[in-house]
């Protein structure tokens, strides 16, 4: 059963997945292009290391972006055919709904491994092609795991959102927006009138910080994405 669920997801996404795998594989190789390798001369090596870190830092935001795109693509494609047929087919199969959803989610997660593995191979090849300056270390596997976790988290969030109807998704997004905006307004009002001690507190920033820092669900996006670091 799982094999068939996996197959139909693959069949639906294969033309989108292949370019994703190519980009995931090629991006680490692209990142290290033109980086000056180490040198015997400590001064030159130090300059090379500084230059290398600077270049990698500039490229770093692209890595979570690609991981997120992989997650979004897999999540939306998981339900695309079902949405088109109003879920009639899946609902007529002898399955508990939760079981079907789990199989679907598992199928998407397995397919998500493909761009992640492509990224890992690309990262290993990219870092091994360089002579790393003294004082620096390569982290291809660590970044690949971060890539996988990012893709999985974005995939899970979007998968859950996309599982419902378009109207449900709009409602959820609308309510989240209302919550954030009204929270911001309430705290702003409280700060200016009742509790001057909380004046300057931003609810939006707090919520963002909460989700992007440990143990927030999106913390993985904001960590180090450096293929080579100290």
């Amino acid at each position: 059963m799982f094999q068939q669920i996996l197959f139909i997801h693959w069949k639906g996404i294969r033309f989108g997945l292949l370019p994703l795998m190519v980009v995931s594989f090629g991006l680490p190789l692209l990142v290290v292009q033109g980086l000056v390798s180490g040198s015997e001369d400590p001064e030159v090596a130090s300059l090379a290391a500084t230059g290398m870190l600077g270049a990698l830092r500039a490229w770093a935001p692209l890595l979570p972006l690609i991981a997120s795109i992989a997650g979004v693509t897999l999540a939306l494609s998981a339900w695309a055919w079902d949405h088109r047929q109003n879920h009639v087919y899946s609902l007529s199969l002898p399955f508990a709904r939760w079981e079907y959803v789990l199989l679907k989610m598992g199928g998407g997660a397995v397919l998500l491994l493909l761009p992640c593995i492509a990224f890992w191979i690309g990262a290993v090849l990219a870092t091994s092609s360089l002579e790393i300056p003294i004082g620096l270390r390569a982290y291809p596997t660590a970044v690949a795991i971060r890539f996988l976790l990012t893709a999985l988290i974005i995939y899970s969030a979007l998968f859950a959102l996309a599982a419902g109807t378009f109207r449900t998704a709009i409602w959820i997004l609308f309510l989240a927006t209302v919550l954030l905006v009204s929270g911001e307004m309430i705290f702003d009002f409280l700060g200016r009138t009742i509790h001057p001690s909380i004046d300057g507190f931003s609810f939006l920033e707090w919520a963002l910080d909460l989700s992007l820092s440990w143990p927030g669900p999106f913390e993985v996006l904001t960590g180090s994405w450096m293929l080579i670091d100290v």
Partner: peptide
Amino acid sequence: YVPERPHLYPGLTVRESINFHSTF
């Protein structure tokens, strides 16, 4: 069950649809 409107996955071939359905 045969619904009023076609409910099968449009990207599958006839054979793949049969294979998919038979699994369940």
